[in-house]
């Protein structure tokens, strides 16, 4: 009986991981990321997930010609410096934050409307541990309206 209880306890613990992950992200974007977006207007769509070392996440979005955009990738400190790239749909690199001291935000503007991909990568830590660090990562996009 003791063994059964042990198994059930471990199963319950494992089953609770999604909830723990979910809680990890709750409120994170609003509190930590949105203030950095100003004076750009948040596009209003939440893109956050719990990522671990080596994980990649992507955001597909349309950049309208003539508008200005700010991309912000914000993450919890425990996963270290997060890399992000802006790619076109042929996966050509347009921008890589690693070449700019791992900046967390960058502004973009385009002459013409196009589909672009924001790719986020959580690098592997230098020291290998049994449990990979994981944390909340949010990709936030803001735009600036232009008046003629």
């Amino acid at each position: 009986m003791k063994g059964l209880v042990k198994i059930l306890f471990v199963t319950a613990l494992l089953a609770s991981f999604p909830i723990l992950g979910f809680s990890q992200c709750k409120g994170f974007t609003k509190k930590t990321c949105l203030p950095i977006l100003e004076p750009y207007l948040y596009n209003g769509q939440l893109n956050s997930a719990v990522l671990s070392e080596g994980d990649v996440a992507e955001l597909l979005l349309t950049f309208y010609g003539g508008q200005e955009y700010r991309v912000l990738v914000c993450s919890q400190d425990l996963i270290g410096k997060v890399e992000f790239k802006l790619l076109d749909t042929d996966r050509n690199e347009i921008f890589y934050n690693k070449e700019h001291d791992y900046t967390t935000n960058w502004d973009f503007n385009a002459n013409s409307t196009q589909q672009l991909i924001i790719q986020v990568l959580v690098p592997q830590g230098e020291t290998k541990t049994d449990i990979a660090n994981s944390g909340c990562v949010s990709i936030v996009v803001g735009f600036k309206e232009k008046y003629d």
Partner: peptide
């Protein structure tokens, strides 16, 4: 989307899709 996801499909944990807000469209 035909953006060549198959090549790195194993690595990508999450894909988000964003739609421009109606504010952007009204502005345009």
């Amino acid at each position: 989307l035909n953006v060549g996801y198959q090549d790195h499909v194993q690595k990508v944990k999450k894909i988000f899709y964003n739609i421009p807000s109606p504010i952007e469209m009204a502005s345009l």
